[in-house]
Amino acid sequence: MSTRFIFLKKYGIGVGLALLFLLIGGNMFFAKVREVTFRASLPLQSLLWKSGASVAQFSEGILYPSALSKEAQYLRDEQSLLISELLSLQDIKREYELLLQSIGNGLPEDFRLQRVDMIGIVPGGDMILIGQGREEGVHAGMSVITSGRVFVGVVKEAFPHASTILLPSHKDFAYDTRIAEKNVMGVVQGAGQGRASMEFLPPDALIETGDIIVTNRIGSVLPPNLFIGVVRETQQVDVESFQRAHIDLTFSPRSLELLFLVVE
């Protein structure tokens, strides 16, 4: 009997059995294991995320000063544009309020938001971690948005003091959405690695590059009219049965910091 065979006979079965128990046990108690791990790693992850953000911000200014000044100029231009838009919107809001008062209705209620802190990105980049969980009122299915009301994702799992957020690019993400202004409905489906597409669009709908995709009020559990992304290109699928639109998501998980949970 060769030495290798004796080694396999002596240790191989034991290692195999240990692996089998690890896999079965791991899957049976997966939620519990993750809960404990998240709780243990939360303070360090939070600290590392904050220090990483400050180092990145500091190094960006040193490494790319010209890019920074260009961005500052762009933001200044954008700010003046937004101010003018804001003024016109304020006029519209005033008219709208007067109109609602005249027909005896109040203003529609806004979302109730709760601030949450991002603490990490799960490998693959299509899921993020936040430092709030069940104890802080977070539940699976709740939506997370940015301060600019951009839709970030949906709470997948809520642990006592941490939660995982499914981004629209995750393969498990599939929610009803619509193309704003055109009112064409479809389903935003994640494709992994930061990519997503809008599926089941009517074959005759005129979808163009740059069309804005928002969450849908009808048939969706997501809060309505939250900005998700823009159409990059369209593709006809299965001989005119429906169209698919590849989309550019508005945010990068790395740029996220201050997030809000939609409580109501």
């Binding site: 590392l48 995320w49 990483g52 953000a53 180092v55 990145a56 990490g120 990105i121 490998p123 790395r254």
Partner: peptide, 22 residues
């Protein structure tokens, strides 16, 4: 463990060609 925490929380801010090394 430390490598994972650093990768997911610290180096997530420094992607190389859009990817954070595993």
């Amino acid at each position: 463990c430390v490598a994972f925490l650093v990768q997911s929380s610290f180096f997530a801010h420094f992607p190389i060609y859009g990817v954070t090394p595993n």
